[in-house]
Design a protein around this nucleic acid. Structure first.
Lengths: 328, 328
DNA sequence: CTTGGTGATGTAACTGGTTACATGGTTGTT
DNA sequence: AACAACCATGTAACCAGTTACATCACCAAG
């Protein structure tokens, strides 16, 4: 409505309009108590009248801070990442930081590309998933000295601080539970392993006390359906299905029901992640609880300490736990 | 490893180290073909040696661009938003824009607060859900002249461009389908309506050709369970449940199964959203398809045109469609 | 009546890039 | 040989803020 045509006003314009110096205007914005009430009001009036909005770039050039951190995740479609990011964003917000998200589709090259973009927009820190990264990515981090935290994966010796789970132990915990329940033939449904260290770590955690039949498929409900159909024809002696992700477990449950196979009477079913759907499903699904929300909060705190006080975070293991439900 | 102690290098340092002017260094970065090969290599060597990384803030102060847009969404926990944001981020990336996400928990005051933060970090445009906003938010947009797009909601007369669905029509389409199937007593499960125009619009779309029993609950699987239990005791004559969100539909399905109520034989069930889980569930759930991915892509394109070419987008209706499955 | 402290404000030098304009050297054309 | 065109490069102004330091008025204490 007002002066739509005019260019944006800057500090100098406000100073001129209110008859004070630029320093005083700057003080009104940042330390209003060091300005007398009368001039403060005059300046404020000019600010309002001119629709003045301070330039974020100019501020950040002086402070050296952008108050932005970037997170690189494979996808938002998996609820486990969405939960993590939700908690991360929320906690970062409490620390006055904003979160830029970049999805990588699990592709290290795309990750490097998006990481570069995050650098270009001035992100102060990076949060990535897992330990599989391209050379371009690694070089970028070295060159820019970018504070970088790895999540979803715990490795105290990794060259960036890790905040995450022991994926191998989580998978083994699940397998041990099934073995304890006397399952000798277990189908293992898992997502793509290429570039996906988290999935590989879970697989590597399994031992061969029972006969394992591995089925790799897309990390989607549909993917689980296909895998279930395959395993029913190729490994009919299976008595339990261990899904290395709850998404697969839910998809498997649906497909088993569709085929008239009762869970847990005809087939036991187990997942890893503990998504809300596993608790609500009928039958509810036994799983390994991965505290994604806690991971988000811890990561936010660690990143904050790093960018604010240059404190490099210690690696931190997020504890997982067995949640026994009806599907086993 | 290298010179960990030194402060960050800037353009002047690089110029000095390579014996050229700042202008030449700047050209090496932006228009390398306008610099002779020999000096380009010398400058590049200095850049590498000094670990020089150009300051995003300084660039953006000159260009007036931050290449960042912000999205304000109620939550990431609902897959419909996660899908939308995933598509949005991906398409924005193709346009060279980064996406900052801010969750509002459906609270207009928190939304205003986070919107202010997005302004402070220099976002070039804002993307919000729905039309319920606080005065503080509205004033912020007016004052900053921030390009703002409303999603998930279509209203050609709204004071910001809207890109979204006709929520009322979607709900009516669902209701009409159930009525056509001779359901005369329909339970309507919906999420919180306070501040939630999208949910209110869906409710408002319903007409009273059948007897409707409304149940408000949390927009979660657990919320649906509670509502189902309530409706079974208070409205036992119900023959169909219309859930105004697929999250509720899935939770309702689980609870009905838990209670031994067969879908669709004993009770028909219908949702709105068309999440992947509705297609895979057993029985698969009849729903109204809301193209969240298309909405994300269209929104990304619209925002890009706005910030790049000052083209204010036209309001755009995203078409919804009935997906008939087994649950009805 | 002078000295000292305090509070409010202004001046100008920063921050780290981009870019208009100026300069000088090389090649091309008639 | 002379003039134009072009290329590579440098100088310095500019973007929009912050802030160290200087200035000045005012009041109280010695």
């Amino acid at each position: 409505m007002v002066l739509e045509n005019k260019k944006k006003a800057n500090l100098r314009d406000v100073a001129k309009a209110s008859g004070v110096s630029v320093a005083t205007v700057s003080r009104v914005l940042n330390t209003p108590d060091r300005v007398s009430k009368t001039t403060r009001q005059a300046v404020q009036a000019a600010i309002d009248h001119l629709h003045f909005v301070p330039s974020a770039a100019a501020r950040s050039i002086n402070s050296g801070r952008s108050h932005v951190v970037g997170a690189l995740v494979p996808t938002l479609d998996n609820a486990i990442f969405a939960r993590f990011l939700g908690a991360l964003e929320s906690k970062l917000g409490e620390h006055g930081l904003s979160l830029v998200i970049a999805t990588t589709d699990g592709d290290p090259d795309l990750e490097a590309e998006k990481a570069q973009r995050l650098v270009n927009i001035g992100a102060e820190a990076l949060i990535v998933s897992g330990v599989t990264h391209s050379d371009a990515f690694e070089q970028l981090i070295v060159r820019t000295r970018m504070p970088t935290v790895v999540t979803s994966f715990f490795d105290p010796n990794y060259h960036y601080p890790t905040i995450g789970y022991d994926n191998a132990a989580a998978a083994r915990m699940a397998e041990d539970f099934l073995i304890e329940k006397d399952h000798l033939q277990i189908a293992v449904l898992h997502g793509p392993t290429e570039h996906h260290d988290r999935m590989r770590a879970r697989l590597s955690g399994l031992h061969e006390k029972a006969k394992l039949h591995n089925f790799e498929t897309d990390l989607t409900l549909k993917g689980a359906e296909n895998a279930v159909n395959e395993l029913l024809s190729t490994a009919p002696e299976t008595t339990a299905i261990l899904c290395l992700s709850d998404v697969l477990a839910l998809g498997a449950l649906f497909e088993l029901q569709r085929r008239g196979i009762r869970v847990p009477q005809d087939m036991s079913l187990m997942g890893i992640d503990d998504l809300p759907s596993s608790a609500s499903a009928f039958p509810s699904i036994t799983t390994i609880h991965l505290p994604a929300v806690e991971m988000g909060i811890r990561t936010a705190d660690a990143v904050f300490e790093w960018v604010e006080h240059q404190t490099v975070p210690e690696p931190h293991l997020i504890e997982t736990s067995l949640i026994i439900r009806q599907s086993t």
